[in-house]
Amino acid sequence: MSSSRRKTDTSIIDDVLKNPSSRRTFLKGASFAAAVTSAALAAGCVPGAEAASEETRLQWKEFFKKNYRLMTQEEKRQTVARLERLAKIRQDMDLQIGTEPPVAGVLYGYGFNISRCEGFMECVSACIKENNLDRKANTQYIRIFEMEPGKLDPATGNGQFFHEVPVEDKFYMGTQCFHCEKAPCTRACPTKATWKEPDGIVVVDYDWCIGCRYCQAACPYYGRRFNWGKPEVPKDEVNRKQHYLGNRLRPKGKMEKCTFCIQRTRKGRLPACVEACPTGARVFGNLLDPDSEIRYVLEHKKVFRMREELGTDPKFWYFID
């Protein structure tokens, strides 16, 4: 099989050498040769492939996988198996990367009680641990702002407080990705590497992201974070329960964001921030369930969304008691 391929390669080279060459014919020949070689490598039947390490072969196959949305269930299983094996080879870590699909009849919504939050920031530290966020650059999805009474725009608040909280006559307001129904970030992506899932979660396919940061510029809420370097997480602090679209370890130069802890919520669990909140200021649930807590908040409380006039339709409501 490989010998016949090599014969094709040599015949092309002969053609190129004998025939008068133009830029067009040269590129055509070169791209064909490259395609043939890579196909052979991907299939694992190229001279010297036996010598290539398992890591190289797995990594090579990873280069040729599809966008997550185009993968069949079998292809998802294969790529997850490869990623788990690569993590085992490279870092000796036993990961469980899930590909749980959205639950039917579920649209996630989030409520934030600005009269309950007292700025303890337990949510932020729980989020860092749960989502394997970069400890070196100190990436954080959630930001808590200490706000003056009467102000509702976090731009007017203090996002970098570190003193005993709560302070009298201040209130606290948290921001994160609001998972907009009309998310401007997904429209800005040139490679369709970010999209809104049927259950309303806006996700990123880290292997399709090219790191152009258009989405970050498009987000009016500063909800997205960029990995300028390779994220560093101490090995014993890595959360092993991961999701392909969620908290799996990101490569360098990729966009990431809050995913409502997709690895938890699709299994019925609450996001880490909700579970960690010591004051019960965070409410999470299914908007399509009339009996859910979030629907109770929407129907009985005074709610507002940030910069509603932009028409982005965030699924994150602030409310007061």
Binding site: F120, V124, S125, A137, Q140, I144, Q160, H163, E164, V165
Partner: peptide
């Protein structure tokens, strides 16, 4: 009253 669990950068 207490100090927050972490701080923002």
């Amino acid at each position: 009253k207490r100090y927050p669990a972490t701080y923002a950068v």
